[in-house]
């Protein structure tokens, strides 16, 4: 009995500590990094099909690539086009810099929790597989920066990144850019990352969305 009480106490203390730490992380999220060194930051780039990938690659071409590296590109296993397009961008960078692509970029496929048209029953199983796979990827990479612009695959990755922040495994900066196709309402991914305060910085491409979501920043069109 005594040992049960003891275990229960430990459990309650652990949960309380976790919750306090989670609140601290939420409060700290959204505050700019204060860095003293100029070491490059490893970056996870989550790609989605079609329009999402085009927007993300446009953004990447405007970013400091030598400060954001290595870059890990992640796309759904069923979406080979996105990784091909990312490879084209990395190859063109490599031609300019002379550094082999293998040192600055990696291309990773991830299981998707649900394909378009898949039934909800079978998607429970595939969702579990997708989460486990996302965990393995995140434990291996532990990125400092996460860039995503809407595909559903970014949700498990961002939640795991948030857990890593709470558990002190890795402090990452999560940037979410809502797709240009969203003019009046956020996508489900965007809504979750905004409301759960998981995204450190939340960007939208239309002023009317910014007016609805006060913490979002309007950045104009990426396409």
């Amino acid at each position: 009995m005594a040992s049960f009480t003891f275990l229960l106490a430990i459990f309650i203390i652990a949960i309380t500590a976790f919750i306090i730490r989670a609140f601290y992380v939420i409060l700290q999220s959204g505050k700019p990094l204060e860095r003293t060194d100029a070491k490059p930051l490893s970056t996870l780039v989550v790609l989605g099909s079609g329009g999402h990938t085009a927007e993300m690659l446009n953004l990447l071409s405007a970013l400091h690539k030598n400060r954001l590296m290595p870059r890990f590109y992640v796309a759904a296993a069923t979406d080979s086009m996105s990784l091909i397009k990312a490879r084209v961008l990395e190859n063109s960078l490599n031609e300019k810099s002379g550094i082999p692509v293998g040192e600055t970029a990696k291309f990773i496929q991830i299981y998707r929790s649900r394909e378009v048209g898949q039934s909800y029953m079978t998607s429970i199983g595939t969702t579990l597989i997708a989460i486990a796979h996302a965990f393995l990827i995140m434990i291996r990479l532990r990125p400092h920066v996460i860039l995503c612009d809407g595909p559903g695959t970014c949700i498990p990755l961002c939640i795991i990144a948030f857990l890593f922040k709470v558990l002190g495994i890795r402090w990452s900066s999560i940037f979410y850019i809502e797709s240009i196709a969203r003019v009046k309402r956020l996508s489900l991914s965007g809504f979750l990352l905004y409301e759960l305060k998981i995204a450190d910085q939340f960007f939208v491409q239309w002023p009317q969305l910014q007016r609805k979501y006060a913490r979002a920043q309007y950045v104009g069109c990426l396409m």
Binding site: P32, L59, V145, Q201, G220, L222, M223
Partner: peptide
């Protein structure tokens, strides 16, 4: 349609990361 410009977004990301 005006050309897209990703620099405002990139600037905010750079600023946040302390570049």
């Amino acid at each position: 349609y005006p050309p897209a410009d990703a620099t405002p977004c990139a600037k905010l990301i750079h600023k946040f990361l302390g570049f």
